[in-house]
Amino acid sequence: MPNHFHLVLRPHGDGDLVERKPLRAELVERAEDWRWSSLPDWIRGAPLLWRGEPPLRDAAWLSRVNEPLSASDLRRIRHSVERGRPFGDEPWTRQTAALLGLESSLRPRRRPRKE
């Protein structure tokens, strides 16, 4: 799929990236102001919104979503997108890459040096 990009996110801790997108693009002042997000419904306690078991969002979720990304997080995300590499902590990244056949995305590019 050369014209598509797929990014696998770890369900806990990195899922806020999706809800942070309109904020990062400066379309809203706070992530919960983006009306096409599930975040406003989650804040209102919409009964049809699946809450997850274990809960997908904890009490600090909203403040994390509205925090700016650090330079190192942004660098890690860009690296994951460029390499087609799952994004998360190292053990989860390795496990997910193995399950999805993406081990090559974990290795450096180029041929290994001759010994």
Rank of each mutant, 00 (worst) to 15 (best):
A31Y: 01
I43P: 03
K114V: 05
K21M: 15
E29M: 10
S104T: 11
T93F: 00
W92L: 04
K114L: 05
L27W: 15
P91K: 11
R111Q: 13
P54A: 13
L56Q: 02
R85H: 09
R57P: 00
L106K: 06
P86V: 09
I77L: 15
G84R: 07
D89T: 12
D16C: 08
N3K: 05
L69P: 01
L62G: 10
W61M: 03
Q95R: 12
G52T: 06
E53A: 13
E67L: 10
E29Q: 12
A98G: 08
R24C: 07
A46E: 15
N3M: 04
P68E: 10
H79S: 13
R75I: 03
L17M: 07
M1S: 13
D33S: 14
S37R: 14
G52E: 14
D14V: 04
L17G: 05
P54D: 07
D58R: 05
W50R: 13
R20T: 08
L7K: 04
I77G: 02
R57Y: 01
L56Y: 00
E19G: 05
S72D: 15
S63C: 01
I43H: 08
H4A: 06
E53W: 01
T93K: 14
W92D: 01
L48I: 04
L74V: 06
L48R: 08
G13N: 13
R113Q: 06
F5L: 09
V28M: 10
R57W: 02
W36L: 14
E32P: 04
R57A: 04
S72G: 06
P54E: 01
R24P: 01
R110M: 12
R83Y: 00
R76L: 14
S37D: 03
L102T: 06
